[in-house]
């Protein structure tokens, strides 16, 4: 096997892992900080993608459409939190079912609004040459984006006063209020932040993953498994799980078939859960 081929496979697999991570971080924030499994996460990603698409079609430059997508998803996320999620804290399986209901409702709304197919915006046609192979630059750029997102969320949550309040509010809500934190407002913001990160992911991945109503389903399953495999130390755990599962599946897929890649993902997930019944980070002594 040629070294350049191997390098190509590794680089593109790393990109796949990063793409998975980008799609996962919002879910990890919402799950890790709030204990909420947001099954509608994929639909927020979709909303982000459609917002960016609609904005670019209306003539807004692509780079500017990304913050618009974040703002729109954050607003919808805040609304969903206030109306639905805030009534369900502490009931993890009820939130799962409620967010699943939200997810199919949003999906259907998207079908009604946009139809089932829509145009992509096309990837910037810049590529990198490795030996005999050329790789598109944009997916490689996703590695950097994933790192930046990870760093941003980590610093926000561990270094800022808001981060402390957010963690306190969800760990012991009653006590957080008793020391003066307006937990409900902080929780709304945290949930909106998670949704905003999903919107960001949808927008930033738009050149790679075209907007379709069902794009959410495709992402959410793997994102979801990644977060659960990660366990209680969500952020660091998710990063590792995304690289292991997403990268591994991508390597498997490039040597065998895409079905084998999926099978790899699910089987390794099962093995990891069997070996680490509470997630890989259950025994880590870290905050996030």
């Amino acid at each position: 096997m040629e070294a350049d081929f191997l390098a190509t496979v590794l680089l593109s697999s790393l990109s796949s892992a990063s793409i998975l991570l980008i799609a996962t971080i919002g879910l990890a924030v919402v799950f890790g900080l709030m204990g909420v499994i947001n099954l509608a996460h994929g639909e927020f990603l979709m909303i982000g993608a459609y917002t960016a698409l609609t904005a670019t079609q209306a003539g807004v430059p692509y780079l500017l459409s990304i913050p618009i997508a974040v703002a729109v998803t954050m607003a919808i996320g805040a609304l969903v939190e206030v109306l639905i999620i805030s009534r369900l804290y502490g009931r993890i399986f009820d939130t799962m079912l409620a967010t699943w209901g939200i997810s199919i409702a949003f999906y259907q709304l998207a079908v009604l609004t946009f139809g089932t197919v829509s145009p992509g915006i096309g990837m910037p046609q810049i590529s990198v040459q490795i030996g005999d192979y050329s790789l598109a630059l944009y997916p490689l750029l996703m590695n950097v984006v994933a790192l930046l997102m990870l760093g941003f969320v980590y610093l926000l949550m561990t270094r800022s006063v808001y981060g402390m309040k957010a963690r306190a509010s969800i760990q012991v809500p009653e006590m957080a209020r008793a020391i003066g934190i307006s937990s409900s407002r902080v929780n709304t913001l945290t949930f909106a932040l998670g949704c905003g990160l999903a919107g960001f992911a949808g927008a930033v991945l738009l050149p790679i993953v075209p907007a379709t109503p069902s794009m959410g389903f495709a992402f959410v399953i793997k994102a979801f498994l990644t977060v659960v495999v990660a366990g209680p130390v969500t952020l660091t755990g998710s990063a590792l799980a995304a690289i292991g599962l997403g990268g591994g599946a991508s390597v498997t897929a490039s040597f065998l078939t895409s079905v084998a890649g999926d099978a790899f993902f699910f089987i390794v997930t099962a093995l990891l859960l069997w070996r680490f019944p509470l997630g890989i980070s259950a025994r880590w002594r870290r905050k996030l």
């Binding site: 963690r167 306190a168 006590m175 008793a178 020391i179």
Partner: peptide, 30 residues
Amino acid sequence: ARLGLGYVPQGRFVFPRMTVAENIAVAAAA
């Protein structure tokens, strides 16, 4: 709490996944 009412509940209820320093800091900041 902001009017000056401090409360220590039965069973303590510290924030378990925050450090000791953060537990104190967050109360002051809030």
